[in-house]
């Protein structure tokens, strides 16, 4: 178990602001795909890189997945967002985006980036707005396509030991589309984040 801990009050507050932000992002995704997005309760905890695979709902260590990541920084808080699609999602995703051509790696990459652009921005800005900071974003990077999660996310190479991980799962009603959005905030960010949450709790 990591030494770093999050107490129940801050975990609850982080879960609630995530709940609001993921709802805003989910609404954008629903509008883009013209379908209903099923929201579930976000999972928040301090994790080590090796814990992450266990926190994922949409993908399993054996599944073939595709993923994108993007760094963010602002107001003394920094980290990385990661979006992981189970590869079984792309057929339905293409259908919903009215993509008629043959679904090759390039096409899937575009679908992946479209979903990323909608979800990352809305979700991270939604969190930032509530804690009264604003995030700047690095360029989105494709972590890999059609690979196992362990190949996309090598725990040995992770630049962090402990981080606050927020796991958000999105599913589409009546479609086989399932993805996990992870927001990984660095250990160094947590003092400031908790102060911001305290302010929100007292307001």
């Amino acid at each position: 178990m990591p030494n770093l801990k999050i107490d129940e009050i801050h975990r609850d507050a982080m879960q609630e602001i995530t709940n609001v932000a993921m709802g805003q992002a989910g609404d954008k995704l629903a509008r883009l795909l013209d379908t209903f997005v099923i929201l579930s309760i976000p999972h928040i905890d301090i994790m080590r890189p090796s814990d992450i695979v266990m926190a994922l709902q949409a993908v399993d260590s054996r599944d073939s997945v595709s993923g994108v990541c993007q760094g963010f920084i602002g107001g003394g808080i920094s980290g990385e967002a990661m979006l992981l699609f189970n590869d079984t999602s792309f057929t339905d995703l293409a259908k919903l985006m009215n993509y008629d051509d043959e679904l090759d790696q390039q096409a899937e990459r575009e679908l992946l980036m479209d979903a990323t652009n909608v979800l990352f921005g809305a979700c991270l800005n939604g969190i930032a707005e509530q804690i009264d900071v604003s995030f700047s974003f690095g360029p989105p990077l494709v972590l890999g396509q059609h690979r196992k999660f362990s190949e996309i996310f090598n725990t040995e190479n992770a630049k962090w030991e402990n981080a606050l991980v927020t796991e958000i799962n999105y599913q589409l009603e009546n479609y086989d589309v399932n993805c996990d959005l992870l927001i990984i905030m660095t250990e160094e960010s947590l003092d400031l984040l908790f102060k911001k949450l305290d302010y929100l709790l007292e307001a």
Binding site: A21, G23, Q24, G26, D27, A30, F36, V37, L39
Partner: peptide, 8 residues
């Protein structure tokens, strides 16, 4: 709720 989809 935070689920602001018109459908919700």
């Amino acid at each position: 709720s935070g689920d602001i989809q018109p459908e919700a």
